[in-house]
């Protein structure tokens, strides 16, 4: 075990978990309101980030960065609304599985659309946070009398902060606004929601629009860290286990799930990590950090089939 590097990897992993949590939240949001697991979320991420790049870069519109981001968010809202109106509403009343598979197809369609419009080349996403000046934090811990210093890239820290701000804003929105109440009511039961006069189609539209915005924000955050190309759409694979870990319907669950996934991926990256297995096995796992969240997921689901925060069905006798 490499104790000296443990805090570094743990904290980096946890911070990486911020954007993962945000992606998970976008999926949970749609699932809660319409019971559809949105497999196209990754492509919404990609389109949001691509749009931001296009509005900002001289090859596209050449807008200042803040304007480009706002424009990209607007595009994502429209994309979310369009997906709901054009693909989900006509499917109303169809079996849930068909609708879910439809989102899978939709994802492929959007991926193709992105290739068609933007091509397949890797783009340099504009720099938002300084790359050269990482934060150095000295922890109040020592190892063999050496103080432990954690070095964190700026974009890592700020991505985490922005993701958490989004989460908090959303939670407040759900808890304290009328639209939030309508959304929570719709999430519980469509028929009852209609009977109290909630226009559930509007609620679905709003959920997809918010999911679009969240996707764009997480897409932009991830693109600032790792560059922008088509592989952005599969980053969302890290969010699926986060969603399931949290229990599909729970917002705190999605956030916690995202952080756990980030942490797990970070810890696996730890060099000379061989307290369970030989160094060769450790190296093999390190090379495939993507599957670690899924292994974790498997273990959690065996113990708690509803996930960590899955809603208990209230049964009164």
């Amino acid at each position: 075990m490499n104790w000296q590097l443990l805090p570094q990897f743990a904290i980096t992993g946890l911070l990486n978990g911020g954007p993962i949590a945000l992606m998970a939240l976008g999926i949970v949001l749609v699932f809660k309101s319409s019971e559809v697991f949105n497999f196209a979320h990754g492509q919404m991420l990609l389109i949001g980030a691509m749009a931001a790049w296009w509005f900002a870069s001289p090859e596209g519109m050449g807008l200042p960065l803040w304007a480009a981001i706002i424009a990209a968010l607007a595009v994502s809202v429209l994309l979310g609304l369009a997906i709901e109106r054009l693909t989900l509403r006509p499917m109303t009343g169809q079996p849930l599985l068909s609708i879910i598979l439809m989102t899978l197809a939709l994802g492929q369609f959007l991926q193709g659309l992105t290739i068609f419009v933007f091509g397949t080349t890797q783009r340099n996403f504009p720099v938002i946070f300084s790359v050269t000046n990482p934060y150095r934090i000295t922890l109040p811990l020592t190892y063999n009398d050496n103080p432990i210093v954690v070095v964190l890239r700026q974009n890592l820290v700020w991505s985490f902060v922005i993701a958490m701000i989004c989460v908090i804003v959303l939670v407040l929105f759900f808890q304290y606004t009328r639209t939030g109440l309508a959304m929570r009511a719709t999430a519980e039961n469509h028929e009852t929601a209609q009977s109290v006069g909630i226009r559930i189609n509007h609620v679905f539209g709003i959920s997809w629009a918010i999911a679009g915005v969240i996707a764009a924000i997480s897409g932009i955050l991830i693109a600032t860290a790792s560059g922008l190309d088509l592989s952005l759409s599969i980053v969302v694979l890290a969010a699926f286990p986060a969603v399931l870990l949290g229990g599909l319907e729970s917002i705190p669950g999605a956030v916690l799930g995202g952080l756990i996934v980030g942490l797990a991926q970070g810890l696996v990256g730890l060099p000379n990590n061989s307290f369970f297995m030989g160094p060769a096995a450790a190296q093999a796992i390190r090379n495939s950090a993507e599957i670690v969240p899924y292994i974790l997921l498997l273990i959690v689901l065996v113990i708690r089939p509803d996930g960590l925060f899955g809603q208990k069905r209230i049964e009164r006798v």
């Binding site: 009328r178 109440l181 309508a182 929570r184 009511a185 519980e188 039961n189 028929e191 009852t192 929601a193 009977s195 109290v196 006069g197 909630i198 809603q311 209230i314």
Partner: peptide
């Protein structure tokens, strides 16, 4: 048929969603 996971008061408030704010 209440919204089971909402509080009693939130349930009451969903009734007022059809009215102007």
């Amino acid at each position: 048929r209440l919204f089971q996971h909402l509080t009693a008061e939130e349930n009451l408030l969903t009734g007022s969603l059809v009215r102007p704010n």
